[in-house]
Design a protein around this nucleic acid. Sequence first.
RNA 1: GGCGCAUUCGUCUAGCGGCCCAGGACACCUCCCUCUCAAGGAGGAGACCACCGGUUCGAAUCCGGUAUGCGCUACCA
Length: 499
Amino acid sequence: MEKPARMRYAPSPTGKPHIGNIRTAIYDWLHARHTGGQFVLRIEDTDRARLVEGALENILESLRWLGCDWDEGPEVGGPHAPYFQSLRLHLYREAAAELIDKGWAYKCYCTSERLEELRKAQAARKEPPRYDRLCRDLTPAERAKVENAGTPHVVRFKMPLTGQTSFEDLLRGEITFENAVLDDHVLLKSDGFPTYQLAVVVDDHFMGITHVLRGEEWISSTPRHVLTYQAMGWAVPEHVHISLILGKDRSKLSKRHGAVDVLTYRDQGYLPEALFNYLTILGWSLDDKTEIISREDLVTYFDIRRISHTSSIFNVEKLDWMNGVYIRNLTAAELAARVLPFLDRGLPPSVSRPVSRDYLVRIVPLVQERIKKLTEIVDLTDFFFVEDLEYDPLSLVAKGLTAAASHAALSEARGRISGLAEWSHDSLEGALRPLAEELQVKTGQLFGILRVAVTGRTVAPPLFETLVVLGRQRALARTDKAISLLQQAIDLERGKTGP
RNA sequence: GGCGCAUUCGUCUAGCGGCCCAGGACACCUCCCUCUCAAGGAGGAGACCACCGGUUCGAAUCCGGUAUGCGCUACCA
């Protein structure tokens, strides 16, 4: 067993967490649970301009839905509270001040306008855009002058001009950067808020984070973080940079690729355990064959080192398949409970609410192996709830049979089953199967007519089971209606072609 | 442009020097089962392991280069 790890998921409340982002939370959570450590949730709300209303609640709900419970963070608190960066400003300011004292940082008074100009000029000269370090070597006198004028400032890191900075990535090995290519990035903004570059280091340190697991887009700024740890005299945590999830066109997953935020998957009828399983398997493997794996086993076997190095394309078809597997593994009672809210939302208003749980539990086994998403329950079972079926009378005419023959078959079938002593699967089958033979029609034809009569559609759950759940009375009533519909069709036909 | 990361079937992956003329899964195709649709079962097609060199008796696996893709290059995270 590895040492208990303190993992953190640190989203910024600038929108709804999407599928790629939440996967890092899942990996964080898994490794924390695997090692018996803690999963910390920290909100990085230092960019006041990009805050989005409701984003925090959405983040929390996404994690809850997926079962990633956090040991420390919003709502639960913890020994390192507060867990919102906007409430920890003094820590960053103190760190920045210490960095200045130690000669690792300096105040910069350049305006954003000047910086903008600078970048433009550099671009024109085809130079890489970077801060020209104008304020880095101001004399004390110059500094005092701007300071007295009350000029606003930011605090920048005093990047070493030479040498290199390396760090060990648990997945990729040693990664090295030349310090010379790194510019003097901003640590503290002029509004007094820290940038990510400072805040992440300060918080990870004080919160005792052992593993920084994040997207690979952070690799390039990791040397800045490492240098900051060193400047502060702090231990550098482990780093794990995981690859991104891409859309079908191989670009970073975004709204353009359809549904990307977690809760949308919930609303589309995916099971949280299926999404959880799929997401971990997308970019991580246990061995050469395991696909379906329970959350418990995942906790037991999860190994950070087996996370894939390469970015992966999100494949909805596979998720759909997996969701189907999980649906089939549910008990009838569980499925009924899961499906209930979708029926409530999807059934026409004419259907009285609430839907009977007992009735539902009898219906659900008939469609369990037929649905891949919970939303599909409505289309597949609404005829169990709707009283007046609406369908094209012509669909009552079996393939290869005339309307008259279909009418005769259905009438005969009605006669055979109406007086059955017992309204059960076996008695129904015992009555209807021989009838097909007597009538010299295929069972598919006979059963098809009945199916439409009783469900209003050509694609439906197995016939006998359906008849049983529907009950004798309703089944017979629907059959009667179908018989008269068929009669009307025949009459109409006669009227057209007759004398 | 600079820096960094990556590169095995359409997609997700197994593989860490010989067990691989590359295994599994989704999707696809065929057949079986069958009252429709599914589910299930049995098969099939699909990867010159990005390319070029090297190391080695032997390389998908190690090394170098090239190409391609992606990421970063903000007082955003």
